[in-house]
Computed example of a mutant assay.
Amino acid sequence: MPPTDESTDPGTGTDCEDTLDLRLSDELIALFARGAGPGDETGGGGSARGQEWGPGRYAEGAADPTPDGSDLLDRVGGWGPAKTPAGVLQLLPVRAGRDLALVHRWMNDPAVAEFWELAGPEAVVEDHLLRQLDGDGRSVPCLGVLDGVPMSYWEIYRADLDPLARHYPARPHDTGVHLLIGGVADRGRGLGSTLLRVVADHVLDHRPACARVVAEPDLRNTPSVSAFLSGGFRFSAEIDLPGKRAALMIRDRALRELL
């Protein structure tokens, strides 16, 4: 996202659950971990699922190595498959050589580009991916592979170690998610909500120290905000981030059976 306002206003919403007002300075963020953090969430575009991908390339349930240092996220690549009402989902850490062309195509769909702002030549997307892959593991870009077919792009990241933590009452081990649904055929039928709920619970199941999964979709992206609400997240506050005003969405471990 292009840098604009760096206000630390935590937002106008009130939330009895968010009483720990922890705002991390640049120095504290650097002390906890060294690296950079990721971007935004929206629906996607591109070709229909299954095109260009040979059988077995993304085999269901196949483990994928997680980049060195990614113990900050308890080795996302080894979490294994998750059953969803739409099929079996696997989060596979991105490999630039294998996945760059696909992610680049998705990022250049106009519906995606409006919010992710990564349209353009392949080098733009490659730089975005490599900053995470070559970092300290606080953010892991993944393909969402549903029944063996890649159909979504995810970023699983340590929100408490990300610049986002300057803008809301962060708690230790808060874990953030960004989602892009790649194929037009997979949008507009509730699949995003289904996957958000399953992936958030997948995070909580595999990160015992994490009490909350957070997200910050652009307030203008009404379908995205709605998907989070339908996916078991609650609206916590409006927050000002560089380049956007966002809805802070939270899925709490303590409330996961109620929402």
Score class of each variant (00 low, 15 high):
V76Y: 03
V213Y: 03
R212P: 02
A247E: 09
L195Q: 11
L229G: 13
A113W: 04
L72Y: 14
A165I: 03
D160I: 00
F32M: 15
L91K: 09
L100M: 08
W53S: 00
V140F: 06
F233W: 10
E216C: 10
G232A: 11
L73Q: 03
R138F: 01
D26L: 11
M249F: 09
A209I: 00
E216T: 13
R171W: 03
A209M: 15
R57V: 14
L180G: 04
G78S: 14
G135H: 08
R245E: 08
G97E: 13
L91G: 07
C142T: 07
G192N: 01
V199T: 09
L259V: 15
G97Q: 06
A119L: 01
S25E: 11
E117G: 03
L72S: 03
R23G: 10
W79K: 12
G44M: 02
D147Q: 06
P55Q: 05
T175W: 04
P141I: 00
A246H: 12
P110D: 12
G135D: 14
H104S: 13
R189Y: 06
E60K: 12
T175L: 02
G11D: 04
R34W: 07
R234M: 10
D134V: 03
G148R: 00
D174F: 06
E41V: 11
L22D: 15
